[in-house]
Design a protein around this nucleic acid. Structure first.
Length: 868
RNA sequence: GGGCUCUUAGCUCAGGGGGAGAGCGCUUCCCUGACACGGAAGAGGUCGGAGGUUCAAAUCCUCUAGGGCCCACCA
């Protein structure tokens, strides 16, 4: 073995061997109960970022542990076609060559994107392999592959048939730069300081004017009314009168609508039904004309008169200037309000009327709310359920059509012949239509595609080739858990629940584990725009995948954001080195390849062996418990601390004296091998590569990845272990404070009130503290100092070698410490209510603390006197 | 406007009714036959502030200050 841990030497080899060995397929555990999770599918042309790494490491830790526990564990990998994102990327790349998609045409543009997908589609899956994701690649899916397209079409058509899908001409969110409608959750609201312009609208009869307030002056070009509150006394006399719209000259009515808030602005609202959702509603109520003044690129159209051709922001200024010139701009005040931006492009979203496809959500959300309320599916942490309910209860119909080319084409065909003259007849079909089913004439397919999230909503069952009734579908639906970031609860989780319940009649997963975002060391969200992202691939290059994995797992407190700290990765790497070197020590005493894959604990362990077995058993139970609760950071913190501080710092040192005596070391060799092997097993879900490498040295049989999850035998260690550790600590501390080298042997005479000192202590005390011990009948005074551990009092002859002043200080400090303990305990015990109300074991515990502290103080005080 | 969340050691963060924890950093000693990517011994927090509940509060409740996030048709 190399002298130090060098992950780059073996990580990629192991991945290839696992994959070739079918380790990641559920079939590796043929009799096992299924345990399945699906990946939150990353963008097919994307790159693995730290957020993916966090998500994958947690999923992989679950899956690998379940696999070792004998489950037919399956992690289904896949990628998402990511409609807008991918189309935008390819368009941008074409733009560099001066080509637009329109010039290319739909068919050739799609060829370009498929080519792009071929080129970059492997990148992220290779990166996932580098990270160690134990996905079953034989079941890999892409949201636009044939099977999933079939599922999408089946769902679309079924929803249509059930009257849960409809086409409607409505006011929706439009992104002028992406050139498509977007759903409500794709709009990001940001608070901005804008201007509230007060405009004078002259009354038709010349009797004066009405002042309206607006943040979007350019929309006045499309005004078809002014609305006031019906009970607003300032304006009641004007209701029914008309205004001459400035700049345009249109005659528009003053209407009464209780939507208007008399408190806001002037209490009079200009109404632009074509470009504002509220105004649209008012327009419907009052039968107002709808006049579009902005085109799909958000430029003023021919209805905008002299402003035609201007961008909406340009027009905003121009309109205000023009009104000002007419003396109709009464004033402008600062106004803070929230402005919607497209989550993809950042462009300000324009409310726009258009024909779109909608999913009627209420029939889908109600059951999805119920299953969370009744606990059939639950979020972890539970508090996410509140936002889930709030969102689901207020959800509006989902606009699923997108005016893009990259995506699932909407399976609807129009026949103009069979239409009613204004609208074509619509046919929604599972099979492609080449002619009209009614008249046999020509049909044209809807040009639009579906929202990317439409296909990912089906992921938990579409990956198994639903609607076919496959064996996999039967075995792995419902999935056993979903683990993802809070940022896609609405986009993805909520919709999987709706679709899963509706089409499979069962929740897609009973448990939803939500983690946070990865932030940089200053707590800022890692993002492209801030350029503060840390590329996990570079971290792996520098430190290895295992250290990154362990660092992320240790940082991932449930439900909290993760502050990525490189020093944690470095620490995890040092831990890897520690494991590596511990293995080298173990292999000096244990025949390489001789450790059994499981069991192998001695029947008759030596005291130190029994102690570590007992401690390990306790730690393992707590570790398993924490893992089942998805508290990985706590689980691995506990394991890490046990392995380093107890197994390595204590047990390896304690085992050495026994190991060097080859005639009698059998039990210790067995313990050492078995304990170390099981420590590797527990670390395998976090550090798969390193543990596999060490397994191959230690066990050399099969993969640790498919080895059994450890079961520690029930063993009780010696009760006096703690006292011995305290004694060793006391001696070391004594040495340190007096500058006595560990090489200088120390003789200790001792009294033993609790009869704790045992024969087996002798070699261990020599090895770990370089002390020899001999019993003495009574306490020793002058010329000695005292080290107290439990009921054992050790006396060290001073022989003038140590500084009495320093020793006095040492003892005084020790006394002060015990006095704090004693006081605290005493305060509680002298409180009658405490003694009466606190649980018995707590009272007993405090009592014990009190007694222990007082006996220590007593002993040390007399020592102080003896020092003179 | 509604909701959630955070404030704990110099730094970055866990924990969450019964003696304050981790990583990094810091001090002293040690290259002892696995490991200096190491070992041993230490220093360092009245757990944002004020009330309250309780035998017991960093932990639960209320208020308060300051961060962060989400939702909302704020012309």
């Amino acid at each position: 073995m190399e002298l130090t841990y060098a992950p780059e030497n073996f990580e990629s080899d192991w991945y290839a061997k696992w994959e070739a060995g079918g380790v990641f397929r559920p079939e590796i555990n043929p009799g096992g109960e299924p345990f399945c999770m699906v990946i939150p599918p990353p963008n097919v042309t994307g790159q693995l970022h730290m957020g993916h790494a966090l998500n994958h490491v947690m999923i992989d830790a679950i899956i690998r542990r379940k696999r070792m526990q004998g489950f037919a564990a399956l992690w289904v990998p896949g990628t998402d076609h990511a409609g807008i994102a991918t189309q935008n990327v390819v368009e941008k790349s074409l733009a560099k060559e001066g080509i637009t998609r329109q010039e290319l045409g739909r068919e050739r543009f799609l060829e370009q994107i498929w080519g792009w997908k071929e080129t970059y589609g492997d990148r992220i899956t290779l990166q996932m392999r580098t990270l160690g994701d134990s996905c079953d690649w034989t079941r890999e899916r892409f949201t636009m592959d044939e099977g999933m397209s079939r599922a999408v079409r089946e769902v679309f058509v079924s929803l249509w048939e059930e009257d849960l899908m409809y086409r409607g001409f409505r006011m929706g969110n439009w992104c002028p730069s992406c050139g498509t409608a977007i759903s409500d959750i794709e709009v990001e609201h940001e608070d901005e300081i804008g201007e509230l312009a007060h405009l004078r609208y002259p009354l038709e009869d010349g009797s004066g004017h009405l002042v309206v307030a607006t943040t979007r002056a350019e929309t006045m070009l499309g005004d078809t009314a002014v609305a006031v509150h019906p009970e607003d006394e300032r304006y009641t006399h004007l209701i029914g009168k008309f205004i001459t719209l400035p700049l345009i000259g249109r005659r528009i009515p003053i209407v009464a609508d209780s939507f208007v808030d008399p408190e806001f602005g002037t209490g009079a609202v200009k109404v632009t039904p074509a470009h504002d959702p509220n105004d649209y509603e008012i327009g419907l109520r009052h039968d107002l004309p709808v006049i579009q003044v902005l085109d799909l690129e958000a430029k003023v159209n021919d209805n905008g008169g002299e402003f035609a051709g201007m961008d909406r922001f340009e027009a905003r200024t121009a309109v205000k200037e023009a009104l000002d010139a007419l003396g109709l701009l009464e004033g402008v005040e600062e106004h803070s309000h929230s402005v919607g931006h497209c989550s993809r492009s950042g462009t300000v979203v324009e409310p726009m009327l258009s024909d779109q496809w909608y999913v009627k959500v209420r029939p889908l959300t109600d059951p999805a709310i119920d299953v969370v309320r009744d606990g059939t599916a639950g979020f972890n942490p539970k508090r996410w359920e509140n936002s889930y309910f709030h969102w689901m209860e207020n959800l509006r119909d989902w606009c699923v059509s997108r005016q893009l080319w990259w995506g699932h084409r909407i399976p609807a065909w129009f026949c103009d012949e069979c239409g009613d003259g204004t609208e074509a007849k619509v046919f929604v079909s599972r099979e492609d239509l080449s002619h009209c089913p009614d008249c046999g004439g020509a049909v044209r397919q809807d040009e639009d595609v579906l929202d990317t999230w439409f296909s990912s909503a089906l992921f938990p069952f579409s990956v198994f080739n639903w609607p076919d009734e496959t064996t996999d579908l039967e075995r792995f639906y419902p999935n056993n858990a979903m683990l993802t970031g809070f940022d896609i609860i609405y986009f993805w989780v909520a919709r999987m629940l709706q679709m899963g319940i509706h089409f499979m009649e069962e929740v897609p997963f009973p448990t939803i584990v939500i983690h946070g975002l990865v932030r940089d060391e200053h707590g800022r969200k890692m993002s492209k725009s801030l350029n503060n992202g840390i590329d996990p691939m570079l971290v792996i290059e520098d430190h290895g995948a295992d250290p990154l994995r362990l660092a992320l797992l240790q940082s991932a407190a449930p439900g909290h954001d993760v502050v990525f700290d490189m020093s944690r990765v470095e620490a995890a790497r040092r831990f890897g080195n520690k494991l590596w070197n511990a293995a080298r020590l173990v292999l000096q005493h244990v025949e390489p390849g001789s450790v059994p894959a499981e069991g192998g604990y001695p029947e008759d362990p030596a005291p130190a062996d029994a102690w570590i077995m007992e401690r390990f058993g306790e730690v393992q139970r707590s570790f398993d418990d924490l893992c089942e609760k998805y508290r990985f950071s706590d689980a691995y913190a506990a394991l890490y601390s046990f392995v380093w501080s107890e197994l390595f710092d204590w047990y390896l040192e304690l085992s050495k004296p026994a190991l060097y005596d080859e005639a009698t070391n059998e039990a210790t060799v067995q313990t050492l091998g078995a304990v170390f092997r099981d420590a590797l097993k527990l670390f395998h879900p976090a550090m798969p590569f390193l543990t596999e490498e060490l397994w191959s040295e230690l066990v050399g049989d099969g993969f640790i990845a498919t080895a059994s999850w450890p079961e520690l035998p029930e063993v009780h260690g010696p009760a006096s272990m703690g006292t011995m550790q305290d004694l060793i600590g006391g001696v070391r501390s004594f040495r340190s404070q007096h500058g006595i080298s560990p090489r200088v042997p120390i003789s200790i005479l001792f009294t033993d009130q609790g009869n704790e000192v045992e024969e087996w202590w002798t070699p261990l005390l020599e090895a770990l503290a370089n002390v020899t011990m001999a019993p003495v009948a009574q306490e020793l005074g002058a010329g000695h100092t005292r080290i107290v551990a439990g009921g054992v009092h050790g006396f060290i002859a001073l022989e003038g070698l140590i500084d009495v002043g320093a020793e006095r200080a040492r003892i005084e400090k020790a006394i002060a410490g015990f006095e704090v303990d004693s006081k605290k305990a005493n305060a509680k015990l002298s409180n009658e209510k405490f003694v009466a109300s606190a649980p018995e074991e707590i009272v007993a515990k405090v009592n014990g603390q009190m007694e222990a502290a007082q006996s220590q103080i007593e002993a040390l005080r007399s020592q102080l006197q003896e020092l003179g």
